[in-house]
Nucleic acid binder design. Structure first.
Lengths: 125, 125, 125, 125
DNA sequence: GTGGTCTAGACCACA
DNA sequence: GTGGTCTAGACCACA
């Protein structure tokens, strides 16, 4: 079952963080068609977020055609965002793992790694 | 002179986007101690953001000890975040460039690359 | 509940006055961890200050790690600045009370007392 | 000759800080009728403040009838704010010196001493 | 001209 | 209802 991590100081609203994490899990293949999202109550217990906020995130995902709420049953994933490239054994992914290993070895902070990634990305996309 | 790119649909508030872009430029070594940030007026002309929003971003940076506002003169960078690892000719950075080249060649979308990066990063930091 | 007294002729900006008074109350032990600050709305009613100015003061305090704003709930003290030396029954404090009694008896004005205090303080800190 | 100490982070405008320090010196008897204030040029050299700011402070003091600008000669004190109570050998002052000695001995910070002073003062004036 | 503060008012996120 | 952000516009301090 997916667990949400809310960063209240990130500047991104809570409901968007929840929606983004669902999509991220879908891209990673951790969530696929038919899978059930945690109920608002479960999320509230785990994250101390207001149930309305969870429901707003799920409504957002439903609006994008990714999930479907079924009365009295819960919210279910209806689409797939998984790609081969994201699979754990995909060569491209494994190479990035190695690159990140080296970054850690060389003592780079998360901020520095993000800065380099952001900059390199901006020249490619 | 640094130019800000505001994405009004990112879910991140404008002032945080401005502050983050200044920090990113500082990490890349594009902005260093003594450099002048664009005036609120200049940013307004370029981005159609309200001057107060720019000043809020600059005050945020001043709080973090990165810049200093001087009345009647402008806002100036007072610290350095530049690291060797971020330099264009750093091996680690060049390797990430190559990795990103391959991702583009294999037809991955920006979203997919971000998803892989986010996931790999979360296992290292 | 703390009540703010704004002196518009002091030359100190309103938001700094509010922040300083919160800190003063925290040092005196009148406000401690878990205590709720008045809402922006309440302060507006009591002082005729703009709500944004109150929020700016609270954000300043949040920056300093002294309070925490919780959406929809209010702003709460998260730290303690109280010291034994400031307690009403602390010997040092009681001696200053007696000193001040004598200053009043001898007919010194508030300005004169402040002048002496400022001068003596400058030779000790 | 009086030397000004400008604290750019105090929230009090520079010209008010200068005016206040002149008045403080007058109360302490360090400046009396006939004494000459430093020229704007001298203050600029010592404090890196703009000459207009110094002149504004002096104009403020002239407005209060405390000093007088004489064309081509400088600015001179024309009044006395000195009081016996502020003299270095005044008993009341000496007692405050002793009190402050003890505060320092007991390890109180400047902030804590200020907090106690502010609170005690508020009950007497 | 440039930053700093304040106001009034709007809209949003969250409880 | 409560805080967070943004806008438009005013006025001030400072250079």
């Amino acid at each position: 079952m997916i667990e949400f991590r809310i960063d209240r100081h990130s500047g991104v609203s809570t409901y968007l963080q929840i929606a983004a994490q669902v999509k991220q899990a879908m891209r990673m293949g951790l969530l696929g068609p038919g899978d059930k999202l945690p109920t608002a109550r479960e999320v509230v217990e785990a994250t101390r977020v207001n149930p309305n906020t969870v429901l707003k995130a799920y409504r957002e995902l439903e609006h994008e055609g990714l999930v479907e709420g079924r009365r009295g049953m819960g919210t279910f994933v209806t689409a797939s965002l998984a790609t081969d490239a994201a699979r754990a054994d995909a060569p491209l992914r494994q190479d990035l793992e190695q690159w990140m290993d080296r970054a850690v070895d060389e003592g780079l902070s998360a901020d520095e790694v993000d800065a380099i990634y952001t900059d390199v990305r901006s020249t490619h996309y």
